[in-house]
């Protein structure tokens, strides 16, 4: 497994742990009602689980296992994949911090706008990164048999 896929998947695993801890806290609070502020974390919990864990895991596994693009650039332009990684996690972390603050009545000074923008960029960046790799039989299946170079015979 190459570096970019490993980074996506390890980050997804970290989000899984964070989401389960936060989800547990929200659930315990629903039963015991020890703080009214905890309820504001519910949408954050949903997004940690579905965006941070599931979507990011899918991104990493897809980048790793989808058919290679070409021999020269097996995974296409990896910079688009890194852009998706940076914007997805940047946007999600901004949301984790500022969405509860917003619910508690603090002004987020455009942080949620930036978070939304980053996550939209992340979604489309991944689409552009993986789109050319959604294809039929790989090049090697249709390539012509390699012929000997005339110079080799001399």
């Amino acid at each position: 497994m190459y570096l970019q896929a490993r980074v996506f998947i390890r980050t997804a695993l970290a989000y899984l742990l964070a989401a389960l801890l936060l989800g547990g806290l929200v659930l315990v609070n629903q039963g015991l009602n020890f703080s009214p502020y905890i309820a504001a974390f519910q949408p954050v919990f949903y997004h940690l689980l579905t965006v941070g864990w599931l979507t990011q895991l899918i991104f990493g596994v897809a980048l790793w296992m989808f058919p290679v693009l070409s021999k020269q650039r097996p995974r296409g332009d990896e910079r688009i994949g890194w852009l998706a990684y940076a914007t997805l996690n940047g946007g999600l972390l901004l949301r984790v911090v500022f969405e509860p603050l917003h619910a508690w009545g603090f002004t987020s000074v455009g942080a949620l706008v930036l978070s939304a923008l980053l996550q939209v960029v992340a979604g489309w960046a991944f689409v552009f990164a993986i789109w050319p790799r959604v294809k039929g039989k790989a090049e090697y299946k249709n390539r012509e048999p390699r012929t000997k170079n005339r110079n080799d015979e001399r």
């Binding site: 917003h102 706008v113 939209v120």
Partner: peptide
Amino acid sequence: SVGGLVLLAKD
């Protein structure tokens, strides 16, 4: 994109 718009509308 739709989710981004909904989040943006919160702010």
